[in-house]
Design a protein around this nucleic acid. Structure first.
Lengths: 333, 333
DNA sequence: ACTTTCTATGAAAGCGTTTTCATAGGAGAT
DNA sequence: ATCTCCTATGAAAACGCTTTCATAGAAAGT
């Protein structure tokens, strides 16, 4: 690997001048610049990241903490982040938090130690206070998929309450009045917000909230299946079932099918997230879409703006859920 | 951020001794070591990655090139890689290649420039020769999901030919003799191997290969749908359809359903990969499973072994596909 | 007791950049 | 013609670590 010294010799200038040409902030005579660039080209010179980092304190790394790197949900978000990082010549450093406080703390510590220039995090287990503490450690930090009041200007999130409300209103509009809900873990802000939205919509429609129609599960398929079985066992009749994510809806679907219930003709079923899977269930699942890629992009832009000391004014922070209508709901008259 | 100097002052030793304690390869008196460790703890000292990298030439980064970071398929692999990287105190640096030669080259160059310590790559567009060239640039490189003869000891791959054969044999064993195949892009080694396996199984069973029963598509849902329509339009009758991946199978499934064909009773359908989706299609799709997480783990182990100058003897390089039987095939008598 | 061999440690030299400070030379102002 | 002020450049310091080399003192061998 060629060093700046070799380049400087070949171009017959000092190392300082080479550096100036490459970083392009100081005036260098056109003729000198050309000579330097030629030498750089000829030697296929690339500045040593470490040496540069040592003096600039920049690693060029965008640290990301996600729950689970394998989930398509986060994958899509990562894709959004990757796009903007790469266009800035930065790379992704990824660590998983597994929705577990210790692991999340570790992941964050780890990225901080590796000197990520910015942090984009989706944490679920760490408290708001702890997030605020991390945010004040000097490295720009952006929260995605979560709203923390103290970090409002650094939270990129989806209005899950609006999403829960939106979907419930849709079911109401289709004539359903007995709507069951499989909620996500109550420890998760997103899950709680969806439930609040559901209740809100019922209230707006003048319907009473019936706790017997709600079961809490853990966002995984199997728990959705069990939740649906539980609901059926209660023998409360309901004509629609709203699962707080698509995976649980998929689980519920198989439980309903096993119970000999026709979806959507006997019971309408909807999910939330619009993961790829939703489209391929049978019947194709109506759901709520979160623009994950756009959110990832926004988070990255925000983080980089902060790194540059800009305000990131123009960057969108709140995203609206949208309804995706497929074939899992039938109107009821 | 505390520096080694501050630690050395606090412990009343030289910086060299602190370094020795932390890197733990040279003898240090037990009492001194304890003093140093106490100081490290007290100051919450973490060595500066750049300074260290400058002298050791190690970044602690595992560079990974995948097609698409958002795909669950690669996500699972990344998870496997992440597990071993993290346990070694290393982090992932990820770049997408989008199955496109230029992008793949860029991704590789990029990671090399960022001084990733090792490279784990899943490239599809770059030629074998070019991969060999990259592999000889000094940075340990491991290929995953691809076999290149010159890099045999650094290729972690699944025997796709065996997979294609396995699935076809299964269909034959179920009594199917007219088996259509939706192949993946012929430019891709994996896709070709699956097709070869399919033909091999037919041949072994003494059946003639009928090109009219094969259509090439591009591994995406929509192309699977079109391919199925094409096959139907040809009016060759077939009782089973083998798609070279699950996504195309999902697409084919919707095409068949639209054509009023009952799967599996009229036509049996199978896929390949066992992505999450496969389980949630209706009927649940029988498919071939690739142990992506294990392969990711193996690739990472191999890469790290090479980095350490070890042979990586014990690490498994070839993985066998396994059949996942669900409900999309019906026996034919 | 005296020499030899270890062992634990410190001093200092890099590693390859960026950046500050100094300066030579030329342009402009008087 | 002289002085001032830029402009382009080089020299050198600094960044924080690892590692080599040197050495004091202890241990061991005679």
């Amino acid at each position: 690997m060629a060093t700046i010294k070799e380049v400087s010799h070949l171009a017959d200038v000092s190392a300082a001048t080479v550096s100036r040409v490459l970083n392009g902030n100081v005036a260098v005579a056109a003729e000198t610049r050309a000579r330097v660039l030629a030498a750089v080209e000829r030697l296929d010179y690339h500045p040593n990241t470490f040496a540069r980092g040592l003096v600039t304190n920049r690693s060029g790394g965008v640290g990301v903490v996600v729950n689970d790197i394998a989930s398509p949900f986060f994958g899509t978000m990562l894709k959004g982040i990757e796009g903007v990082a790469e266009s800035e010549g930065m790379h992704l450093m990824i660590s998983s938090g597994h929705a577990n406080a210790d692991a999340e703390r570790n992941a964050l510590d780890f990225l901080l130690r590796c000197r990520a220039d910015v942090l984009i995090v989706h944490t679920e287990a760490l408290s708001d206070a702890e997030m605020v503490a991390f945010a004040s450690r000097g490295t720009p930090l952006v929260l995605v998929g979560r709203y923390v009041a103290e970090l409002a200007s650094r939270s990129v999130y989806l209005d899950n309450e609006a999403g829960g409300c939106l979907m419930t209103e849709y079911l109401l509009a289709q004539g359903h009045t007995r709507i069951a809900h499989i909620a996500g873990p109550s420890a998760l802000h997103d899950a709680r917000a969806r439930l609040v939205g559901y209740r809100q919509a019922l209230e707006n429609a003048g319907l009473d909230y019936d706790a017997g129609l709600v079961v809490e599960a853990n966002f995984e398929e199997e728990s959705g299946r069990r939740a649906a079985q539980q609901l059926l066992a209660r023998r409360r009749d309901f004509s629609a079932l709203f699962a707080a994510n698509d995976q649980m809806a998929a689980g519920a679907l198989s439980a309903l099918r096993e119970a000999g219930i026709d979806v959507p003709n006997q019971i309408s079923l909807v999910g939330y997230d619009d993961v790829l899977l939703a489209r391929y269930l049978y019947p194709p699942l109506s759901t709520v879409c979160q623009p994950m890629e756009a959110m990832g992009r926004a988070a990255a832009q925000l983080a980089l703006a902060e790194l540059r000391g800009e305000s990131g004014e123009g960057v969108r922070r709140t995203f609206e859920p949208t309804l995706v209508i497929r074939n899992s709901v039938v109107a009821r008259c």
